[in-house]
């Protein structure tokens, strides 16, 4: 019973966050100076009546609350609304694009985590490795993700390696410090004095103590991976969600932006709640 109550409270908090986040985004978008600025209005070839028509189209979205309420009502029916710039249902857009993003994110996350974990462990276990891996990570950390993407493209590397390279130094830094602290605990010394195998010490004594940090890092890294997917998909002309977000931003596509924001907020918050819950258990 207690368990059910906690899940309900988590769900309520999640829903409130997403709803408030969506409303704030909508209000921000609506009141932003760029909201009425449509590229088409800057087009000198259009006459006044066409511009008026475009204005009228925007006017429909003017009342924030009404727009939001309409949006929410649609959401309840599984209708995410229409994209203003692409003139297609948003649900369809997301359905046809999420697989691309999910694939490169999963591959990039896996590669980045494995690379970072192995090198962080090597750095903690061996002083000589620490110096080399440190230089490598500072080098990767000093390049903007877009530059990493460009370099990988020029060298014809696989796309997801960009995401792995963006994630690697941040994961590496954090994991190295985490492992260093974990290995410095007195009970690890006890385990060593027992004569345990190093792998057993890692699996039984080091990692279980870091579970909450690792979980939090997993969530952060997924979010970072999506951030990195934006320039990657833009550069590689991959039809994924990252490219969609970029297109929506360039075209100032209000419904699409709000929907994407809410979707991403919801996903990250679900991840957070799950990890919170896990840690508390």
């Amino acid at each position: 019973m207690l368990w059910l109550g906690r899940v309900a409270r988590q769900a309520a908090s999640l829903a409130a966050t997403v709803l408030i986040g969506g409303l704030l985004t909508t209000a921000l978008v609506r009141n932003s100076p760029g909201f009425d600025a449509d590229e088409r209005q800057l087009d000198a070839r259009l006459d006044d009546s066409t511009r008026a028509l475009i204005q009228a189209g925007h006017a429909e979205n003017h009342n924030v609350l009404r727009f939001y309420a309409r949006h929410m009502r649609g959401l309840l029916h599984g209708d995410l609304g229409m994209s203003a710039s692409l003139q297609t249902p948003i649900a369809g857009l997301i359905r046809s694009r999420y697989a691309v993003t999910a694939e490169i994110m999963a591959a990039g996350l896996a590669a980045g985590w494995i690379l970072a974990f192995v090198l962080a462990l090597a750095a903690v276990w061996n002083g000589a490795c620490a110096r080399i891996t440190g230089v490598f990570s500072v080098a990767a950390l000093s390049l903007p993700s877009a530059a990493l993407a460009v370099l990988v493209f020029v060298l014809h590397g696989p796309v997801h390696s960009v995401i792995a390279l963006v994630l690697f130094p941040r994961l590496f830094d954090y994991l190295r410090n985490l492992l260093q602290d974990a290995y410095a605990q007195p009970h690890i010394l006890t385990a060593r004095a027992k004569g345990l195998h190093p792998v057993r010490i890692l699996v039984r004594h080091v990692l279980p103590g870091c579970d909450r940090q690792l979980l939090a890092l997993a969530g952060v890294s997924a979010s970072m991976a999506f951030g990195a997917a934006i320039p990657v998909e833009t550069l590689g002309d991959l039809p994924g969600l990252g490219q969609l977000a970029w297109k929506a931003a360039l075209a100032r596509d209000l419904p699409l932006l709000v929907t994407l924001t809410m979707l991403i907020t919801m996903l990250t918050q679900i991840c957070n709640s799950v990890s919170d819950w896990w840690v508390r258990e």
Partner: peptide, 22 residues
């Protein structure tokens, strides 16, 4: 590693933190 714990034992200073809390 065969010597540690089997032929030489070690007892540390602060007992509560020398045990794995989990």
């Amino acid at each position: 590693r065969r010597v540690r714990g089997r032929e030489i034992g070690l007892v540390l200073q602060s007992p509560l933190s020398a045990l794995n809390p989990s």
